[in-house]
């Protein structure tokens, strides 16, 4: 039998993987993908508990979040693209014109 706790554990693992990816990676595209994984982790919670509570709002939330994720990727890629055009790189270590 699958308890709600299993969903939470699964989503936490996904969340940690995503967070680890954001913190460890030097490549902006991989960071972007890791952020998507984090959003997915939240989505899993929403879907799982939507079915647990028999409440549709969770699923509606997932639809919205997916849309947001798509928009986020679009804007992110656009910014990274313009960065790439100027510097020929998207390595995050090289973003140091402004002091961190």
């Amino acid at each position: 039998m699958i308890d709600p706790i299993h969903f939470v554990v699964f989503s936490s693992i996904l969340m940690l993987i995503g967070a680890y990816g954001v913190i460890r990676n030097k490549n902006a595209i991989v960071v972007l993908m890791s952020i998507e994984i984090m959003l997915t982790a939240a989505n899993i919670n929403f879907v799982a508990f939507s079915s647990y509570y028999h409440d549709l709002t969770g699923q509606v939330a997932v639809l919205f979040v997916t849309t947001i994720a798509a928009a986020e990727v679009a804007i992110g890629l656009a910014i990274l693209l313009s960065l790439f055009k100027q510097r020929d790189t998207i390595e995050l270590d090289l973003l140091n014109t402004l002091r961190w």
Binding site: V31, A41, N45, F46, A48, F49, T57
Partner: peptide, 16 residues
């Protein structure tokens, strides 16, 4: 984007 993903996860936990 990173921090809004964190917020969203927090919200999903509260929903749960």
């Amino acid at each position: 984007a990173f921090s809004s993903a964190l917020t969203l996860y927090g919200i999903s936990l509260l929903y749960a």
